[in-house]
Design a binder for these strands. Structure first.
Lengths: 149, 149
DNA sequence: TAGTTTGTACTACGCACCGTCGTATCAGAC
DNA sequence: GTCTGATACGACGGTGCGTAGTACAAACTA
């Protein structure tokens, strides 16, 4: 198992920038090749005053943390989220669970469910059903076996 | 929804100290009234060199973050973990899930399960069964309020 | 081709958090 | 009244993050 990189904590601005990248990913659809610093900056500037270089620094740090990747596009870089929001969320949750070295995992999960809405419980059951279906038919590879590296 | 207190991040030493408190809680059993700075210090000193006041500072900070509570005992304070390891773990996980504002929670949970062992899946199912049993018999009070020690 | 624009790279500053501890001080036991 | 065990308070260095300036290279443009 290729134990992926940890999931570092996100600062407030880092989070806003990630939000922006994720948003662009959705909007951009399949052939999405990332956004430039300028694009992120212009988007953020609609809400608050912020320097272009600030955005650049943040993007740079996110890249160093492997939360985003980047590809050259002429002189500029195009930044892409390394993971979906959902994958990063899951990784962070998992890291918490692993790091805390709980002795009674069932109890921890119980506490977790304690704070869950009925909607969320339904989501969880759906997810559970899905992994089970998956392991029932391990041959059906393709669509779902794509791991979010 | 009454969004409970946040779950601040733990530093390395803070974590070690919490570990110690939790350990004492288990060992101390029911009438456990907390440990003193001295006791924590003596325990930590077995593994590494560390000043008494360092331990005091850490305990103090943990108290300020409401991760531990303290009660007077003569001139000294006795410190107790505010939550079990399991409860804190769950709260931290929940916080991640809530804060990340996932649009597709089912997908996030699916990713989460992706990293789970079969053991863990079993734990999760057990926990799920438990909350369901609980909500099936909402009249059976006592059960809900009895904390899973 | 010289100036303007557009983009990055590098450096820096202030603040908050955390590991680390020293010093001051205070309440009791002798 | 001094000694001991305890706290309170303050401080310093490192690191992460928000913030941005400056220096410099490439590409357009007049």
């Amino acid at each position: 198992m290729p134990h992926s990189a940890h999931a570092p904590r996100l600062g407030d601005l880092e989070r806003v920038v990630m939000d922006r990248l994720w948003e662009s990913t959705v909007a951009g659809g399949d052939g999405f090749a990332g956004v430039t610093v300028r694009e992120v900056h212009e988007a953020l500037e609609k809400d608050r005053e912020i320097a272009y270089t600030t955005v650049m620094t943040v993007l740079d740090r996110l890249a160093k943390k492997d939360l985003v990747t980047r590809e050259r596009d002429g002189r500029a870089w195009r930044y892409l989220p390394a993971d979906t929001r959902e994958a990063l969320t899951a990784r962070t949750m998992r890291r918490t669970l692993d790091d805390m070295e709980v002795t009674d995992r069932r109890s921890a999960l119980l506490h977790f469910l304690d704070g869950a809405s009925t909607d969320e419980i339904a989501d969880l059951k759906a997810a559970l059903a899905e992994v089970e279906a998956r392991s029932d038919r391990p041959a059906s590879r393709g669509a779902r076996s794509r791991r979010p590296r």
